[in-house]
């Protein structure tokens, strides 16, 4: 019964929520912007050639250790390749996968979810059954199987992510579309003779968009992890392209002699995945017309 609560109390609560959301949005957005810039400007800003090997300067420690060589800020790996430069170039692969796979997954999954949730009937039965069958497969196994069939490569990773994760969107958006479809505003639009397709796109879609955006951001984070996992098990793209997962796999072997080879790409991965999920949540609340 919001009407009986004095307006000032409600406003105060909202302001506090908004402040907290603001900080979260800024921090996560800031990190993502940094990664995006690094990825875009990699050829110009990376201090070294990420592929250049130099066995004489292998396993150099990071810059704050006294006896290290200057120019290798985060140290080098066992082959003498610069860790910072490899992280910067690795951001490219991570973000390409995040954006392409995330967007495709969101588009396909949300479209099917919307259709199932709003049109119901046989379309819903078909799509829901498909989702159920799909979810019965263990996802990581499914991904590895797919890549084994498609052959390793950026394209295969993206396809694998879309094929596995569309159900996440389909399920959630179907439920939301069903809720929205039961509202009186949809009935009014129907009475006014608005075609059903347009009701779905013009009336329902705007109301599920905040959820799609939040899920999309989360999905981007998941895509980054999946790419890293597949690189880790050597199923990702060719080994001469630096990727965070590949670096973690290599760093793991020499963690006792050179921890920095493992830890820095891990931090980059962790912060990026965390930022994607936090950014999504923040955006969702920002989009929400009632909290706005």
């Amino acid at each position: 019964m919001p009407r009986s609560i004095p307006g000032c109390v409600m406003l105060d609560g909202r302001a506090a929520i908004r402040r907290r959301l603001g900080l979260r949005l800024w921090l996560s957005g800031g990190w993502l912007a940094l990664v995006l810039l690094a990825a875009l400007l990699a050829p110009w800003i990376s201090p070294q050639d990420p592929l250049a090997q130099d066995l004489m300067s292998g396993r150099l420690p990071p810059f704050w250790v006294p006896q290290t060589e200057p120019g290798f800020w985060l140290g080098t790996d066992s082959l003498g390749r610069d860790v910072l430069s490899r992280i910067i170039w690795g951001a490219r692969v991570a973000l390409i996968v995040a954006f392409v796979a995330g967007t495709l997954t969101a588009t396909i999954g949300s479209a099917l979810g919307l259709i199932a949730g709003y049109f119901r009937g046989w379309a819903d039965r078909l799509i829901s059954r498909l989702v159920d069958i799909w979810m019965a497969f263990p996802p990581v196994l499914f991904a590895i199987l797919l890549i084994a069939v498609l052959g390793p490569g950026l394209m295969s990773i993206i396809i694998a992510i879309v094929v596995i994760d569309w159900t996440r969107f389909a399920r959630v958006i179907r439920a939301e579309a069903m809720n929205q479809g039961a509202m009186d505003y949809v009935a009014s639009a129907q009475v006014a003779g608005m075609p059903r397709g347009r009701i779905m796109l013009a009336e329902i879609l705007p109301n599920v968009l905040p959820t799609i955006v939040a899920l999309l951001s989360l999905e981007m984070g998941i895509s980054v992890i999946v790419e890293a996992i597949l690189s880790f098990v050597n199923l990702s793209i060719s080994t001469d392209q630096p990727t965070w997962g590949g670096m973690i796999a290599e760093g793991r072997i020499s963690v006792h002699q050179a921890w920095w080879v493992l830890v820095f790409p891990l931090i980059a991965l962790f912060l990026t995945v965390l930022s994607f999920s936090q950014f999504g949540e923040g955006l969702k609340d920002r989009f929400d017309p009632v909290l706005r």
Partner: peptide, 30 residues
Amino acid sequence: KRVGANAALIPQDPLTALNPSRRIGGQVTD
């Protein structure tokens, strides 16, 4: 078409009868 041109509904719950994510103007002019 026939119903749209000749009939309209005043619903019970004004909270859910307007689309929360669209401005009033568009909803009336539609």
